[in-house]
């Protein structure tokens, strides 16, 4: 209980400094475009994954499965992920301008056991300055180049060619 309270306080202090005014937009090929605030994401169900960052050390990351967010926006996953929807991708953007791409199939639980999360904590603490409030964590990937930090936008699109 106390621990939870402390964590809550920590998170709100953090929100007051770095995360102020920041939201994550979910847009593109969605039925419901979303603008998620830190508070919105705090209400969602959390998952924990362990994975090694660039420092080579294994850390515990906690956050929301990316597919839960996509599902909330009405992205074609699960039974709908077939046919032309197989040509859809998710582009994730950072506040610093960096962009990384995932095909929908490499995120979907019907295709893979790997759970890609939108993390807001590492080893029980908020992400450090510059990397938060939210960072994508891709367990099992050898190089963390897709662990994009300071996520601001998630866009689903059809590949054009």
């Amino acid at each position: 209980m106390l621990y939870k309270l402390a964590a809550g306080l920590l998170i709100s202090a953090f929100m007051a400094t770095t995360a102020f005014g920041q939201t994550i937009s979910v847009e593109g090929e969605v039925t419901t475009p979303l603008k998620l605030s830190v508070a919105d994401i705090a209400k969602m169900k959390k998952t924990e994954v362990t994975a090694a960052d660039r420092d080579g050390k294994t850390h515990r990351y906690s956050g929301v499965p990316v597919t839960d967010i996509l599902q909330q926006a009405g992205v074609t996953l699960g039974a709908q992920l077939r046919g032309e929807n197989m040509a859809k991708y998710l582009l994730v953007k950072s506040g610093d301008g960096y962009e990384v791409l995932f095909s929908l199939a490499e995120l979907d639980a019907a295709f893979t056991d790997r759970v890609v999360i939108l993390a807001d904590q590492v080893d029980g603490k908020p992400l450090p300055d510059g990397k938060g409030p939210f960072r994508i964590v891709v367990p099992g990937e050898k190089k963390p180049a897709r662990w994009i930090w300071e996520v601001t936008t998630m866009t689903v699109r059809f590949a054009k060619d």
Partner: peptide
Amino acid sequence: IELYHNNGLDSLPRDAGREKQTGVAADRGR
């Protein structure tokens, strides 16, 4: 690469850079 970074010139930048565009504190001096 078309990225925005604060490359450590100042602790309190006279020109807030991208923060003036976005209003986001993380963009200060970027």
